[in-house]
Design a protein around this nucleic acid. Structure first.
Length: 113
RNA sequence: GAAGUUAGUCGAAUGGUCGCUGGGAUUUUUCUCAGAGGAAAGUCUGGACUCCAUAGAGCAAAGUGCUAGGUAACUCCUAGGUAUGGUGACAUAACGGAAAGUGCCACAGAAAAUAAACUACCCUAUAAUAGGGCAAAGGUGAAAAGGUGUGGUAAGAGCGCACCGCACGGAAGGCAACAACCGUGGCAAGGCAAACCCCACUUGGAGCAAGCUCAAAUAGGUUACCUAUGGUGUGACUCGCACAAGGUAGCGGGUAGAGUGCUAAAGCGUUUUGGCGACAAUGCGCGUAGAUGAAUGACCAUUAACAACAGAAUCCAGCUUAUAGACUAACUUCCCGU
Protein backbone atom coordinates (compact mmCIF):
# COMPACT_ATOMS: atom_id res chain seq x y z
CA UNK A 1 0.00 0.00 0.00
CA UNK A 2 1.56 3.29 -1.16
CA UNK A 3 0.87 6.83 -0.06
CA UNK A 4 2.81 8.28 -2.96
CA UNK A 5 1.34 11.05 -5.05
CA UNK A 6 2.45 10.38 -8.61
CA UNK A 7 1.84 12.34 -11.78
CA UNK A 8 -0.89 9.89 -12.84
CA UNK A 9 -2.90 11.04 -9.85
CA UNK A 10 -2.96 14.68 -10.92
CA UNK A 11 -5.01 16.48 -13.51
CA UNK A 12 -2.98 18.58 -15.96
CA UNK A 13 -4.90 19.08 -19.17
CA UNK A 14 -7.11 22.07 -19.69
CA UNK A 15 -9.68 19.92 -21.44
CA UNK A 16 -9.96 17.60 -18.48
CA UNK A 17 -10.66 20.53 -16.15
CA UNK A 18 -13.26 21.92 -18.51
CA UNK A 19 -14.92 18.53 -18.70
CA UNK A 20 -15.19 18.17 -14.94
CA UNK A 21 -16.42 21.74 -14.48
CA UNK A 22 -19.08 21.12 -17.08
CA UNK A 23 -20.40 17.71 -16.06
CA UNK A 24 -19.22 17.18 -12.49
CA UNK A 25 -21.24 17.16 -9.28
CA UNK A 26 -20.69 20.04 -6.84
CA UNK A 27 -20.48 19.82 -3.06
CA UNK A 28 -19.96 22.92 -0.96
CA UNK A 29 -18.57 23.09 2.56
CA UNK A 30 -17.65 25.97 4.81
CA UNK A 31 -14.07 26.25 3.58
CA UNK A 32 -14.02 24.15 0.40
CA UNK A 33 -15.92 23.40 -2.75
CA UNK A 34 -15.38 20.10 -4.58
CA UNK A 35 -16.43 19.30 -8.15
CA UNK A 36 -16.14 15.62 -9.12
CA UNK A 37 -16.92 13.18 -11.91
CA UNK A 38 -16.32 9.42 -12.35
CA UNK A 39 -13.24 8.43 -14.38
CA UNK A 40 -12.20 5.36 -16.32
CA UNK A 41 -8.58 5.44 -15.12
CA UNK A 42 -7.05 3.12 -12.53
CA UNK A 43 -6.68 5.72 -9.76
CA UNK A 44 -8.62 8.73 -8.53
CA UNK A 45 -7.18 12.03 -9.72
CA UNK A 46 -6.81 15.46 -8.11
CA UNK A 47 -6.95 18.91 -9.60
CA UNK A 48 -6.50 22.22 -7.83
CA UNK A 49 -8.21 25.49 -8.65
CA UNK A 50 -7.44 27.97 -5.92
CA UNK A 51 -8.42 31.37 -7.25
CA UNK A 52 -6.51 34.54 -6.70
CA UNK A 53 -9.81 36.24 -6.06
CA UNK A 54 -10.52 34.11 -3.01
CA UNK A 55 -7.12 34.41 -1.38
CA UNK A 56 -5.01 37.34 -2.48
CA UNK A 57 -1.73 36.23 -0.89
CA UNK A 58 0.33 33.45 -2.43
CA UNK A 59 1.12 32.11 1.03
CA UNK A 60 -2.54 31.46 1.74
CA UNK A 61 -3.13 29.80 -1.62
CA UNK A 62 -0.12 27.54 -1.15
CA UNK A 63 -1.44 26.49 2.23
CA UNK A 64 -4.75 25.37 0.78
CA UNK A 65 -3.06 23.49 -2.05
CA UNK A 66 -0.78 21.65 0.36
CA UNK A 67 -3.61 20.64 2.61
CA UNK A 68 -5.63 19.40 -0.33
CA UNK A 69 -2.73 17.34 -1.65
CA UNK A 70 -1.98 15.93 1.77
CA UNK A 71 -5.55 14.85 2.42
CA UNK A 72 -5.85 13.31 -1.04
CA UNK A 73 -2.52 11.49 -0.70
CA UNK A 74 -3.32 9.92 2.64
CA UNK A 75 -6.84 8.81 1.78
CA UNK A 76 -6.90 8.07 -1.94
CA UNK A 77 -6.91 4.29 -1.24
CA UNK A 78 -10.39 4.66 0.21
CA UNK A 79 -11.77 7.05 -2.39
CA UNK A 80 -13.73 6.06 -5.49
CA UNK A 81 -12.08 6.43 -8.89
CA UNK A 82 -13.27 9.93 -9.66
CA UNK A 83 -11.67 13.14 -10.81
CA UNK A 84 -11.80 15.70 -8.04
CA UNK A 85 -11.29 19.43 -8.58
CA UNK A 86 -10.83 21.28 -5.32
CA UNK A 87 -11.61 24.96 -4.89
CA UNK A 88 -11.19 27.14 -1.86
CA UNK A 89 -13.93 29.32 -0.39
CA UNK A 90 -13.44 32.57 1.41
CA UNK A 91 -13.53 32.22 5.21
CA UNK A 92 -11.99 33.33 8.44
CA UNK A 93 -8.62 31.72 9.29
CA UNK A 94 -8.86 28.33 10.99
CA UNK A 95 -6.39 25.58 11.87
CA UNK A 96 -5.13 23.03 9.36
CA UNK A 97 -6.87 20.18 11.22
CA UNK A 98 -10.30 21.71 10.71
CA UNK A 99 -9.60 22.26 7.03
CA UNK A 100 -8.39 18.71 6.40
CA UNK A 101 -11.32 17.16 8.26
CA UNK A 102 -13.87 19.05 6.19
CA UNK A 103 -12.18 18.30 2.90
CA UNK A 104 -12.10 14.56 3.62
CA UNK A 105 -15.76 14.69 4.49
CA UNK A 106 -16.54 16.42 1.18
CA UNK A 107 -14.56 13.85 -0.82
CA UNK A 108 -16.74 11.10 0.58
CA UNK A 109 -19.98 13.03 0.22
CA UNK A 110 -19.50 13.88 -3.44
CA UNK A 111 -19.19 10.26 -4.57
CA UNK A 112 -22.23 9.18 -2.54
CA UNK A 113 -24.34 11.83 -4.16
C1' G B 1 20.51 53.30 35.39
C1' A B 2 16.85 55.87 32.10
C1' A B 3 15.61 58.08 27.44
C1' G B 4 17.32 58.36 22.59
C1' U B 5 20.41 58.57 17.62
C1' U B 6 22.99 55.85 13.88
C1' A B 7 24.83 51.34 11.66
C1' G B 8 24.29 46.16 11.45
C1' U B 9 22.91 40.71 12.50
C1' C B 10 19.22 36.75 13.23
C1' G B 11 14.17 35.74 11.46
C1' A B 12 13.35 29.09 15.64
C1' A B 13 16.61 24.54 16.40
C1' U B 14 17.17 19.09 16.83
C1' G B 15 15.18 14.10 16.18
C1' G B 16 11.36 10.61 14.18
C1' U B 17 7.28 8.90 10.52
C1' C B 18 4.79 9.76 5.75
C1' G B 19 5.43 12.67 1.22
C1' C B 20 6.87 16.62 -3.08
C1' U B 21 10.56 18.92 -7.16
C1' G B 22 15.35 18.62 -9.59
C1' G B 23 20.42 16.40 -10.30
C1' G B 24 23.67 12.04 -9.92
C1' A B 25 24.50 6.74 -9.27
C1' U B 26 22.27 2.01 -9.94
C1' U B 27 19.97 -0.22 -14.05
C1' U B 28 13.96 -1.09 -12.61
C1' U B 29 13.59 0.32 -7.69
C1' U B 30 16.39 1.56 -4.56
C1' C B 31 20.44 4.76 -2.74
C1' U B 32 22.43 9.58 -2.45
C1' C B 33 22.93 15.13 -2.92
C1' A B 34 20.38 19.89 -3.29
C1' G B 35 15.77 22.59 -2.57
C1' A B 36 12.34 30.18 -1.02
C1' G B 37 13.25 35.78 1.14
C1' G B 38 15.16 40.02 3.76
C1' A B 39 11.96 41.76 1.64
C1' A B 40 11.01 36.33 -2.99
C1' A B 41 6.21 41.72 -2.45
C1' G B 42 5.02 46.73 -5.00
C1' U B 43 6.53 46.69 -10.55
C1' C B 44 8.87 52.41 -9.21
C1' U B 45 14.00 53.18 -11.66
C1' G B 46 18.59 51.42 -14.14
C1' G B 47 21.08 47.55 -16.82
C1' A B 48 22.26 42.42 -18.97
C1' C B 49 19.81 39.40 -22.68
C1' U B 50 16.29 38.87 -27.17
C1' C B 51 13.56 40.57 -31.40
C1' C B 52 12.14 44.82 -34.42
C1' A B 53 13.51 49.66 -36.27
C1' U B 54 17.64 52.84 -37.51
C1' A B 55 22.09 57.98 -43.00
C1' G B 56 22.34 62.53 -40.17
C1' A B 57 19.88 66.44 -37.59
C1' G B 58 15.64 68.66 -35.41
C1' C B 59 10.55 69.06 -33.29
C1' A B 60 7.27 66.91 -29.88
C1' A B 61 6.87 64.04 -25.36
C1' A B 62 8.82 62.23 -20.78
C1' G B 63 12.46 62.52 -17.04
C1' U B 64 16.40 64.88 -14.20
C1' G B 65 18.18 69.71 -11.83
C1' C B 66 23.94 72.48 -5.32
C1' U B 67 29.34 70.29 -5.89
C1' A B 68 32.92 66.29 -6.31
C1' G B 69 33.32 61.19 -6.71
C1' G B 70 31.52 55.65 -7.10
C1' U B 71 29.16 52.19 -10.52
C1' A B 72 27.76 48.18 -16.24
C1' A B 73 24.01 51.90 -15.41
C1' C B 74 20.43 54.92 -12.71
C1' U B 75 15.72 59.07 -10.51
C1' C B 76 20.75 54.82 -6.79
C1' C B 77 25.11 55.18 -3.33
C1' U B 78 29.33 57.96 -0.80
C1' A B 79 31.71 62.46 0.80
C1' G B 80 31.10 67.65 1.03
C1' G B 81 28.33 72.57 0.71
C1' U B 82 23.90 75.40 1.84
C1' A B 83 19.05 75.79 4.20
C1' U B 84 15.59 74.04 7.92
C1' G B 85 14.43 71.12 12.53
C1' G B 86 16.44 69.09 17.25
C1' U B 87 19.58 70.71 24.10
C1' G B 88 22.45 66.92 21.50
C1' A B 89 24.05 62.28 18.89
C1' C B 90 21.77 63.41 14.26
C1' A B 91 17.69 64.03 10.73
C1' U B 92 15.25 66.19 6.43
C1' A B 93 15.59 68.73 1.14
C1' A B 94 12.10 68.32 -6.80
C1' C B 95 18.36 72.47 -3.55
C1' G B 96 18.61 76.01 -11.65
C1' G B 97 15.59 80.58 -13.23
C1' A B 98 10.33 85.13 -10.50
C1' A B 99 14.37 92.47 -14.14
C1' A B 100 11.51 86.75 -20.99
C1' G B 101 6.26 86.26 -20.84
C1' U B 102 1.31 84.38 -19.04
C1' G B 103 -1.43 82.93 -14.79
C1' C B 104 -2.91 82.28 -9.47
C1' C B 105 -2.78 84.28 -4.30
C1' A B 106 -9.37 81.84 -0.63
C1' C B 107 -11.09 84.44 4.03
C1' A B 108 -9.83 88.80 6.45
C1' G B 109 -8.03 93.56 5.26
C1' A B 110 -8.00 100.49 3.19
C1' A B 111 -4.66 97.97 0.01
C1' A B 112 -2.32 91.17 -2.35
C1' A B 113 1.19 95.08 -6.28
C1' U B 114 3.08 99.92 -12.70
C1' A B 115 1.43 100.06 -5.29
C1' A B 116 -2.01 102.43 -2.41
C1' A B 117 -3.72 105.35 2.24
C1' C B 118 -8.94 103.02 6.35
C1' U B 119 -8.28 104.71 11.60
C1' A B 120 -4.44 108.08 12.67
C1' C B 121 -0.38 112.04 12.98
C1' C B 122 1.28 117.18 11.31
C1' C B 123 0.75 122.05 8.62
C1' U B 124 -2.31 125.93 6.11
C1' A B 125 -7.11 128.06 5.35
C1' U B 126 -11.83 127.99 7.11
C1' A B 127 -15.09 125.86 11.95
C1' A B 128 -17.75 120.26 11.50
C1' U B 129 -14.73 120.72 5.52
C1' A B 130 -10.97 121.57 1.72
C1' G B 131 -5.77 121.53 0.18
C1' G B 132 -1.02 119.71 1.31
C1' G B 133 2.78 116.63 4.05
C1' C B 134 3.83 111.68 6.10
C1' A B 135 3.87 105.98 6.44
C1' A B 136 6.40 106.18 12.70
C1' A B 137 1.44 104.05 15.76
C1' G B 138 -3.42 100.89 15.23
C1' G B 139 -5.94 96.86 12.96
C1' U B 140 -6.12 92.21 8.92
C1' G B 141 -3.46 88.22 7.10
C1' A B 142 0.72 82.73 5.78
C1' A B 143 2.67 87.22 3.52
C1' A B 144 2.00 94.52 3.67
C1' A B 145 8.96 98.00 0.44
C1' G B 146 14.58 95.53 6.92
C1' G B 147 15.29 95.33 13.02
C1' U B 148 17.05 97.96 17.65
C1' G B 149 18.89 102.49 19.50
C1' U B 150 19.99 107.55 18.76
C1' G B 151 19.99 112.16 16.28
C1' G B 152 16.62 114.82 13.41
C1' U B 153 11.58 117.12 12.20
C1' A B 154 5.71 120.89 11.96
C1' A B 155 4.77 115.60 12.19
C1' G B 156 7.56 111.83 10.32
C1' A B 157 10.60 108.84 7.30
C1' G B 158 17.66 105.02 6.09
C1' C B 159 16.59 111.51 6.15
C1' G B 160 21.77 111.05 8.96
C1' C B 161 24.70 107.82 12.29
C1' A B 162 26.08 103.00 15.37
C1' C B 163 25.30 97.72 15.69
C1' C B 164 22.71 93.45 13.45
C1' G B 165 20.52 91.63 8.86
C1' C B 166 20.49 92.07 3.39
C1' A B 167 22.49 93.08 -1.63
C1' C B 168 26.75 94.03 -4.61
C1' G B 169 32.27 94.06 -5.43
C1' G B 170 36.92 91.97 -3.99
C1' A B 171 39.03 87.76 -1.54
C1' A B 172 42.63 83.90 2.39
C1' G B 173 41.24 78.86 1.69
C1' G B 174 38.97 74.77 -1.25
C1' C B 175 39.33 70.37 -7.49
C1' A B 176 34.38 72.44 -6.86
C1' A B 177 29.63 73.75 -4.55
C1' C B 178 31.00 77.37 -1.11
C1' A B 179 33.44 80.91 1.71
C1' A B 180 36.95 83.21 6.77
C1' C B 181 37.78 88.27 6.03
C1' C B 182 37.74 93.37 3.72
C1' G B 183 35.12 97.17 1.23
C1' U B 184 30.78 99.59 -0.97
C1' G B 185 25.42 100.59 -0.98
C1' G B 186 20.85 103.34 2.71
C1' C B 187 18.28 98.81 1.31
C1' A B 188 15.84 97.01 -3.25
C1' A B 189 7.90 95.98 -5.87
C1' G B 190 6.20 90.16 -2.22
C1' G B 191 4.99 84.60 -2.68
C1' C B 192 3.85 80.29 -5.90
C1' A B 193 7.95 77.31 -11.16
C1' A B 194 5.52 69.17 -7.28
C1' A B 195 1.08 76.37 -12.36
C1' C B 196 2.19 77.00 -17.65
C1' C B 197 6.91 78.35 -18.97
C1' C B 198 12.53 79.49 -19.80
C1' C B 199 17.59 77.32 -19.44
C1' A B 200 20.94 72.95 -19.20
C1' C B 201 21.44 67.69 -19.59
C1' U B 202 19.40 62.53 -20.70
C1' U B 203 16.18 59.16 -23.53
C1' G B 204 14.55 54.59 -30.57
C1' G B 205 10.41 50.65 -29.56
C1' A B 206 8.72 46.19 -27.39
C1' G B 207 9.54 42.59 -23.72
C1' C B 208 11.24 35.52 -21.45
C1' A B 209 3.71 34.66 -22.97
C1' A B 210 11.02 38.22 -25.47
C1' G B 211 13.05 34.87 -28.82
C1' C B 212 15.09 30.19 -31.10
C1' U B 213 14.37 24.77 -32.46
C1' C B 214 11.37 20.30 -33.38
C1' A B 215 6.54 19.32 -34.84
C1' A B 216 0.76 15.45 -34.77
C1' A B 217 -4.49 15.74 -36.43
C1' U B 218 -7.61 18.83 -39.56
C1' A B 219 -7.99 22.56 -43.27
C1' G B 220 -5.52 25.17 -46.94
C1' G B 221 -0.93 26.48 -50.33
C1' U B 222 2.65 24.59 -53.82
C1' U B 223 5.58 20.98 -57.12
C1' A B 224 5.86 16.25 -59.65
C1' C B 225 3.50 11.89 -61.29
C1' C B 226 -0.96 8.80 -62.02
C1' U B 227 -6.41 8.21 -63.27
C1' A B 228 -5.65 9.88 -68.95
C1' U B 229 -6.38 7.82 -75.93
C1' G B 230 -10.68 10.36 -69.67
C1' G B 231 -13.90 15.35 -67.82
C1' U B 232 -15.24 20.81 -68.62
C1' G B 233 -14.58 25.34 -71.71
C1' U B 234 -13.28 27.32 -76.68
C1' G B 235 -15.08 25.07 -81.53
C1' A B 236 -19.46 22.52 -86.78
C1' C B 237 -15.60 18.74 -85.98
C1' U B 238 -10.30 17.26 -85.37
C1' C B 239 -5.69 19.08 -83.70
C1' G B 240 -4.33 22.73 -80.46
C1' C B 241 -4.85 25.81 -76.15
C1' A B 242 -6.94 26.76 -71.27
C1' C B 243 -9.26 24.88 -66.78
C1' A B 244 -11.12 21.60 -63.04
C1' A B 245 -11.68 16.92 -60.02
C1' G B 246 -9.73 12.52 -57.44
C1' G B 247 -5.34 9.78 -55.82
C1' U B 248 0.01 9.16 -54.51
C1' A B 249 4.65 11.30 -53.17
C1' G B 250 7.52 15.57 -51.97
C1' C B 251 8.28 20.83 -50.35
C1' G B 252 7.64 25.14 -47.41
C1' G B 253 4.59 27.86 -43.72
C1' G B 254 2.54 26.48 -39.17
C1' U B 255 -1.75 25.26 -34.68
C1' A B 256 -2.06 21.75 -30.33
C1' G B 257 2.08 19.87 -27.97
C1' A B 258 7.39 19.24 -26.79
C1' G B 259 12.31 21.13 -26.21
C1' U B 260 15.41 25.33 -25.53
C1' G B 261 16.00 30.19 -23.41
C1' C B 262 16.85 28.40 -17.58
C1' U B 263 20.50 29.51 -14.25
C1' A B 264 28.10 30.04 -13.15
C1' A B 265 26.17 35.07 -11.79
C1' A B 266 28.56 42.92 -12.92
C1' G B 267 28.17 35.34 -7.91
C1' C B 268 29.28 34.40 -2.49
C1' G B 269 32.93 34.13 1.62
C1' U B 270 37.68 35.72 2.96
C1' U B 271 43.28 37.82 2.78
C1' U B 272 46.25 41.93 1.53
C1' U B 273 46.76 46.86 -0.68
C1' G B 274 44.73 51.90 -2.08
C1' G B 275 40.76 55.40 -0.58
C1' C B 276 37.62 59.74 4.88
C1' G B 277 33.94 56.79 2.24
C1' A B 278 30.77 54.60 -1.70
C1' C B 279 34.18 51.41 -3.96
C1' A B 280 38.44 49.43 -6.71
C1' A B 281 42.58 46.06 -7.43
C1' U B 282 44.65 41.39 -5.86
C1' G B 283 45.38 36.19 -3.95
C1' C B 284 42.79 31.87 -1.87
C1' G B 285 38.38 28.94 -1.13
C1' C B 286 33.19 27.54 -2.49
C1' G B 287 30.26 25.67 -6.72
C1' U B 288 24.40 27.50 -4.37
C1' A B 289 16.25 26.16 -6.18
C1' G B 290 14.88 25.94 -11.38
C1' A B 291 8.94 24.38 -10.96
C1' U B 292 5.32 25.14 -15.42
C1' G B 293 -2.74 23.14 -13.11
C1' A B 294 3.34 25.11 -10.85
C1' A B 295 7.94 21.37 -5.54
C1' U B 296 10.36 23.06 -0.65
C1' G B 297 5.09 20.26 3.19
C1' A B 298 2.06 17.50 7.18
C1' C B 299 1.98 15.16 11.95
C1' C B 300 4.54 13.88 16.67
C1' A B 301 8.39 14.74 20.61
C1' U B 302 12.04 17.98 23.23
C1' U B 303 14.09 22.87 24.00
C1' A B 304 10.98 28.47 29.54
C1' A B 305 8.56 30.66 24.25
C1' C B 306 4.76 26.88 19.39
C1' A B 307 5.71 32.90 17.04
C1' A B 308 5.82 38.70 12.65
C1' C B 309 5.68 40.26 7.42
C1' A B 310 5.31 36.93 3.92
C1' G B 311 6.21 32.09 -1.20
C1' A B 312 11.18 32.12 -6.42
C1' A B 313 8.89 32.05 -12.17
C1' U B 314 14.84 35.13 -17.31
C1' C B 315 18.77 37.25 -14.26
C1' C B 316 21.30 41.24 -11.68
C1' A B 317 21.90 46.52 -9.20
C1' G B 318 18.88 49.81 -6.43
C1' C B 319 14.43 52.31 -4.44
C1' U B 320 9.71 51.91 -1.80
C1' U B 321 6.43 49.46 1.43
C1' A B 322 5.27 45.26 5.39
C1' U B 323 7.69 42.93 9.66
C1' A B 324 6.34 39.47 16.25
C1' G B 325 10.50 38.84 18.88
C1' A B 326 15.90 38.54 19.98
C1' C B 327 20.88 40.51 19.73
C1' U B 328 25.62 43.56 18.70
C1' A B 329 28.61 48.09 18.20
C1' A B 330 29.52 53.35 18.32
C1' C B 331 27.67 57.90 19.91
C1' U B 332 24.23 61.73 22.55
C1' U B 333 21.35 63.85 26.70
C1' C B 334 19.78 63.38 31.75
C1' C B 335 20.15 61.12 36.75
C1' C B 336 22.96 58.44 40.69
C1' G B 337 27.64 56.78 42.86
C1' U B 338 33.15 57.01 43.19
Amino acid sequence: MSFRLTREAKIFKTGEYANIFKEGKIVRGKYWQVIAKPLKTSTPRLGLAISKKVYRLAVDRNRFKRIAREVFRLHKQHLDVWGFVVMARKSKPVTNLVLSAELLDLFKKVSEK
